[in-house]
């Protein structure tokens, strides 16, 4: 490569092309790009992330139905793996933050949240597939489920008066409550939004880093070959992040719902 104005403009063009590719790959669209070549135009009512949302659900149902089709007193294989997480979610997330009765009742919800987010995260790591959780609408949708249980679940469980009283902690002077109640009320939605943004940002950032590192290979050619090692390491870290983010989302959902269910604590 010679250091000429043509080379510089070529590098600039490549960089812009790579940026455009990454932006297209990360954002939702109706064109499924099959590498190394070929594009599939999706129907008008479907988007890439929509397919990933539905496909991840079907994949999760299929895998768990296969794992649970022959119940044995002692679990083996995948069922053992699933049971480990189910037990952890019930004993270390649901019951500690919601109490014995509510914790056991809501364990299926948290298990569904955890495994659904995990599968969507992991599916996004497969080449030619897309990360639905890197879409803010998907994470907002999931967080709104948590918000639904924080509001509707609490009203059903404790009653509307108790729900409203939850915004005014006992023993606080009235003039502080004037400030505190609105803050608490807005905090309800901020918590849910934080859940959504945290998951969205982590998943999107990981993919952006991997694509950016791989894009350097395209822009700078063989000179940037060592960068590919770093891309592989970040990709491996993404697998860990997929589990970590599913865990954090589920844990914080349990914490937030538990705070509304038991406002005294």
């Amino acid at each position: 490569m010679t250091n000429t104005p043509d080379t510089a403009s070529m590098v600039t063009a490549k960089s812009e092309a790579v940026q455009a590719f990454i932006l297209h790959h990360m954002s939702d669209s109706r064109t499924w790009s099959w590498l190394p070549a070929g594009h599939e135009q999706l129907p008008a009512f479907l988007t890439l992330h929509g397919i990933m949302v539905i496909g991840s659900g079907i994949l999760l149902i299929f895998c768990l139905a296969m794992a649970c089709r022959r119940p044995t007193p002692v679990p083996h294989g995948w069922l053992n793996f699933v049971e480990f997480f189910v037990k952890y979610i019930r004993d270390d997330m649901a019951i500690p933050f919601l109490g014995e009765k509510d914790g056991r009742r809501l364990t299926p919800l948290f298990c569904s949240l955890f495994f659904y987010i995990l599968v969507m995260n992991l599916v996004g790591l497969i080449p030619c597939f897309y990360t639905a959780t890197a879409n803010i609408n998907v994470t907002l949708g999931l967080a709104s489920i948590t918000l639904f249980f924080m509001i509707a679940g609490t009203i059903l469980r404790n009653g509307p008066i108790a729900f409203l009283k939850g915004f005014a902690p006992p023993g606080i002077p009235w003039y502080i409550l004037i400030l505190l109640v609105p803050v608490e009320f807005v905090g309800l939605f901020i918590r849910a939004a934080a859940l959504a943004i945290r998951l969205f940002a982590n998943e999107m950032a990981g993919h952006l880093v991997v694509f950016s590192l791989l894009g350097m290979l395209i822009v700078y050619g063989a000179t940037a070959l060592p960068i590919s090692i770093m891309a592989v390491l970040v990709f491996i870290q993404e697998i860990f992040v997929a589990f970590l983010q599913a865990y954090i989302f589920t844990l914080l959902s349990a914490v937030f719902i538990g705070q509304r269910y038991h406002p005294a604590h």
Binding site: L64, T107, S112, L113, I136, N137, V138, G141
Partner: peptide, 30 residues
């Protein structure tokens, strides 16, 4: 293309899919 474009249909799709997944998983797995 936008990374933070809010889409009501996508959120609704997420709710519906999650509700169905949670319901089916409750029966077959949890």
């Amino acid at each position: 293309p936008s990374l933070v474009k809010v889409s009501g249909p996508m959120m609704a799709l997420t709710w519906v899919t999650f509700a169905m997944v949670a319901l089916i998983l409750y029966k077959v797995a949890w």
